[in-house]
Simulated assay, not measured.
Amino acid sequence: MSGYIHDDVLESLPGKMNQTDINVTGNEEVNDSPIEEVRLTVPITDDPSQPALTFRTWVLGLASCCLLAFVNQFFSYRQNRLSVSSVSAQILVLPMGKLMAATLPTKVVRFPFTNWTFSLNPGPFNLKEHVLITIFASCGASGVYAVSIITIVKAFYHRSLNLVAAMLLAQTTQLLGYGWAGLFRKYLVDSPYMWWPANLVQVSLFRALHEKEKRSKGGVTRLQFFLIVFITSFAYYIMPGQIFASLASLSFVCWIWKDSVLAQQLGSGLHGFGIGSFGLDWSTVAGFLGSPLATPLFAIVNILIGFFLFLYVLVPIAYWTNTYEARKFPIMTSNTYDSTGKIYEISRILNEKTFDLNQAAYNNYSKLYVSVLFAFTYGLSFATLMASISHVALFEGQ
């Protein structure tokens, strides 16, 4: 028996959904989300006739993955990090996919020595292909954390690293992460309460690019709105990116008291607390924490509170009370120092042949010192691991 969901059924669902035109048959489970933002953004319909793992998907997906992996790794070495998200690939592959659909032959190709066949052009470029290609791109855009180890060994310790060993290190850490994600799929993916706000932005963009929408009188469609924002943001970025690069960081306190060390510590956005400093370059805003436009208000407020307590309470107290001789070194730097305040010479405490610590040389040279900000950052990065457990225990432990 076919019909619509009644109000009493909707009231019993988490989140108290409003009446919708979701058609169900018999005792079929209502496939909708208890999160309002998800219900308003993600459609629950599916077209099983659309092909997904096509030749276009593999070609454009692998190309996007490799390209974004290279670009983001390359730009990660900048002082002001520039990150290219999978949204860029999501936009660029659409015309490429449509071009392949219009030009490739429909010839069916068979894998040698197997019965597997595929078509170079199974039909119009569809939404499922587009989504899968973007998932490919996301895998490359996130980068490989273990590359930092390889970079440090080569750049700071001037040691050669075997190519196979470096590749195995990178692959092991990546596969370990994917393995953990698979083990916790039930909680991180399948659970309707585990929603990812940044993904909703991409879902909205998918719908704008693929769905036919009738424009209301005096309004704009999703696609028109996207094009307006895209062109405007592109035109704006020319200013801080090419014409007037100093707009990336404006530190008025440093400009006014340019000879004051205290003013530089308080006002510098690069080596200080950034008081009175702001940037007009979007990569400055979203380079490390991602775009705030896709983050819910409660998360932004939590981040701001933690940021304020850490940067403007904890770090200044530790620095100006000279905890562990903190005032001998810059407030914000990732460099290491010796007891005299000079850059630590790592080569003086390492055995050149075995590449391990020479304890006698270390005792004769100096202790290793780091800036107060770097020390707290390193320590709190370990605390976040326990914080995730505490969060689950406090909010989901009942």
Rank of each mutant, 00 (worst) to 15 (best):
R39L: 11
T106F: 02
R222A: 06
Y337A: 03
V285D: 01
F273Q: 02
L373F: 05
V392W: 14
N199C: 08
Y157Q: 04
G341K: 05
L394R: 06
G269V: 05
V372R: 00
S138G: 13
S249N: 09
Y319P: 05
L289F: 13
P197H: 04
L161M: 15
S381L: 10
K353I: 08
S334K: 09
L262A: 11
L168S: 11
D8C: 07
H6I: 09
A181H: 09
C139D: 00
A63M: 10
N27W: 03
S191F: 05
F234K: 05
S76C: 15
D338P: 05
A137T: 10
D46Q: 07
C254Q: 06
H271I: 13
I35L: 10
A387M: 12
H130A: 12
V93D: 00
I228R: 07
G287H: 04
A102W: 11
L311R: 13
K154C: 10
L168K: 10
L183Q: 13
D338R: 03
F125Q: 03
T172K: 04
T57D: 07
L99V: 09
A89Q: 10
I317M: 10
N80V: 10
T103W: 08
N199F: 09
M96D: 00
K107C: 02
V9E: 12
F75G: 00
L60D: 02
Y236Q: 03
I238K: 00
I149C: 03
H271N: 10
M332L: 15
V9G: 00
S86H: 09
A299L: 14
F288R: 11
W257H: 05
T117Y: 02
G379Y: 09
A137D: 06
I150Y: 11
L92D: 02
T134D: 01
Q359H: 09
A248D: 06
N162R: 07
T117K: 10
N115A: 15
K353G: 03
N80K: 12
R110H: 08
S339G: 09
F55Q: 02
W282P: 02
Q79D: 12
L289R: 14
S291H: 10
A137G: 04
A361Q: 12
I149D: 01
V147H: 04
S233E: 12
F273R: 01
F156T: 08
S390T: 12
S366H: 05
S64A: 15
I305L: 14
T57V: 14
L380C: 12
F374Q: 08
M194V: 04
A165L: 05
T377I: 04
Q90K: 04
E345F: 00
S233Q: 10
P192Y: 07
G177F: 08
Y312M: 01
D338I: 08
R185I: 02
K16M: 04
G379M: 06
V261R: 05
F70D: 02
S12F: 02
N322D: 15
F230K: 01
V59S: 03
V42D: 08
Q19R: 11
Q265C: 03
L289E: 11
L176V: 12
S12M: 07
Y236E: 02
R215V: 15
L183C: 13
D338H: 06
F307M: 02
L380A: 08
M332V: 13
N335D: 15
Q398G: 11
I228L: 14
P105F: 09
W196M: 07
